[in-house]
């Protein structure tokens, strides 16, 4: 017997809305702890280092150093470190040459709000 279920979700991001709005524009918005100074990207509501709730938003340049990269079933991914962030981040790669050492956050190339890294600064998002 076959059975099909189609589900369509409507997401709200709550306290993380500023982060997702920025990513949708290709802008890297980190959260910086006012207690210990730890900068997290992707952003967090509580500091991952000291658990303080006193965090503020801080735009990053959007440039990231590629640490490791691999190719999944269909796409390429990498573990990168964005300039100005204390955390590393997993991103999707878009037309990054095989031996490139860095890339730039770009506007997502699909209808989800994920972190994509492109080759050129000119492709990077701009803060309004």
């Amino acid at each position: 017997m076959k059975r099909q279920l189609t589900l369509e979700y409507a997401f709200e991001f709550g306290a993380l809305e500023p982060y997702y709005s920025a990513v949708a524009r290709g802008v890297a918005l980190a959260s910086v702890c006012e207690q210990c100074g730890y900068a997290a990207f992707p952003a967090r509501i509580l500091c991952p280092k000291c658990a303080s709730s006193y965090v503020k938003w801080k735009p990053l340049l959007g440039r990231a150093q590629i640490v490791h990269r691999t190719t999944g079933a269909k796409h390429e991914f990498a573990l990168v470190r964005f300039d100005g962030a204390d955390t590393q981040t997993v991103v999707r790669l878009h037309t990054i040459p095989p031996h490139a050492s860095h890339g730039w956050l770009i506007v997502p190339r699909d209808d989800l709000i994920g972190l994509w890294l492109g080759a050129a600064a000119s492709d990077a998002g701009k803060e309004d």
Partner: peptide, 16 residues
């Protein structure tokens, strides 16, 4: 909300 948004699969994450 992060890994899921970029379409990464289990093998690629474990690979990294």
């Amino acid at each position: 909300w992060t890994d899921g948004m970029i379409g990464i699969d289990s093998t690629a994450l474990y690979a990294l």
